[in-house]
């Protein structure tokens, strides 16, 4: 009985914290069904576990994504670890980069979450209450609405899932590597060890099993939020308003429709971000473009040139033809 009381107290506690020192807080609803799973070791997987961990019922046919709120990130790298563990990804290089606490360095074929650490000047002399001028950001594949990698893929290995995410089919990819320079965000990469392209799958396997993606589930500050895109966007817009009200004027969304990052035919990013400095500070392009928009006009110009050269060749061979 004590276990039930404990869980109920926890629930009460969470509900009472809705307003923290007068600042608006938006806790995720804690569903009553959570009380059914009190044991430390469960008999099997929890059906629709994402309902308990993210308040989301995962339904095929809906658009899902990540809202990565960098104002909440504490740089714990739990997302990196959770991703490596769930997806069974080995470490990249082992060593020190000398770049703040970032020894991961970059997203790669083997690293699908990457926490950036940006130590901003002014920290030593003045320490404003907000994050001490230290920006952290957990980067990930953007799962673009119009994805450069997918449109470049000649084998159909890259495809759009029933959750509106972009995934590489490892049994189809032949490692041509064309998706790599096509990605406007430098995310996807080929792995020399197995000869295929790899990137974040937005935990396609977990979504199919009703589980929240590993990184989002492990995030202790809810900096990484998983959910249906409309819902996430609403939450993100509210968060920006709240931050502005708190005096964090620099907060803005990167990757929502019409915003920076969702330009040039890309449409929107299913994994979008709340940023606190200009996109370039995080190595994100301010106004990227969808590479495949450049195919048609270039190809037509090339074919017109070939038609002209062919006519020149016709003229060259036809010249003086009468004195055959």
């Amino acid at each position: 009985m004590s276990a039930v009381n404990y869980a109920e107290t926890e629930l009460q506690d969470a509900r009472s914290r809705v307003h923290l020192e007068g600042h608006p807080v938006h806790p995720l609803p804690v569903p009553e069904r959570a009380l059914q799973y009190r044991e430390s070791i469960l008999a099997g997987i929890i059906p629709h576990e994402a309902e308990l961990t993210a308040g989301v019922t995962i339904t095929p046919g809906q658009s899902y994504g990540f809202f990565t709120d960098t104002s909440l990130c504490i740089g714990c790298k739990a997302c990196e670890v959770a991703c490596k563990e769930w997806n069974n990804l080995p470490a990249d290089e082992i060593g020190l980069t000398g770049q703040s606490y970032d020894n991961t360095g970059r997203l790669s074929a083997l690293t699908w979450r990457h926490v950036e650490f940006i130590e901003q000047p002014g920290r030593a002399t003045s320490m404003p209450a907000f994050q001490s001028h230290w920006l952290m950001m957990s980067d990930v594949c953007k799962h673009c609405a119009n994805a450069g990698c997918l449109e470049a893929c000649p084998t159909g290995a890259l495809f759009r899932t029933e959750f509106d995410t972009v995934v590489v089919q490892q049994d189809v990819c032949n490692g041509c590597g064309y998706c790599v320079p096509s990605c406007p965000f430098g995310v996807i990469e080929t792995n020399k060890l197995d000869g295929k392209a790899h990137k974040c799958t937005l935990c396609y396997d977990r979504l199919k099993g009703g589980l929240e993606p590993a990184c989002a589930k492990s995030c202790p500050t809810n900096s990484i939020q998983f959910g249906p895109l409309d819902d996430l966007t609403r939450r993100a817009e509210q968060r920006v308003k709240d931050l502005h009200a708190l005096g964090v004027d620099n907060a803005y969304l990167y990757g929502t429709r019409g915003g920076p990052g969702a330009t040039g035919g890309i449409g929107r990013l299913n994994a979008f971000f709340l940023l606190l400095d200009r996109p370039e500070a995080y190595n994100l392009p301010a106004a990227p473009t969808l590479p495949s928009t450049r195919v048609r006009s270039g190809l037509l110009a090339g074919l017109a040139t070939m038609a002209g050269l062919t006519l020149a060749a016709v003229a060259a061979f036809a010249a003086g033809r009468r004195d055959r």
Binding site: N146, T263, G265, G267, R268, T289, S292, T293, R294, V295
Partner: peptide, 26 residues
Amino acid sequence: RAEDYLRFTQPGQEVSGNGRAGQRVL
């Protein structure tokens, strides 16, 4: 070269074609 790409993708500088190549209408 990070700076090249980040400068190349400044707003108003985008190099985009006709933007109709098989795109989804959101």
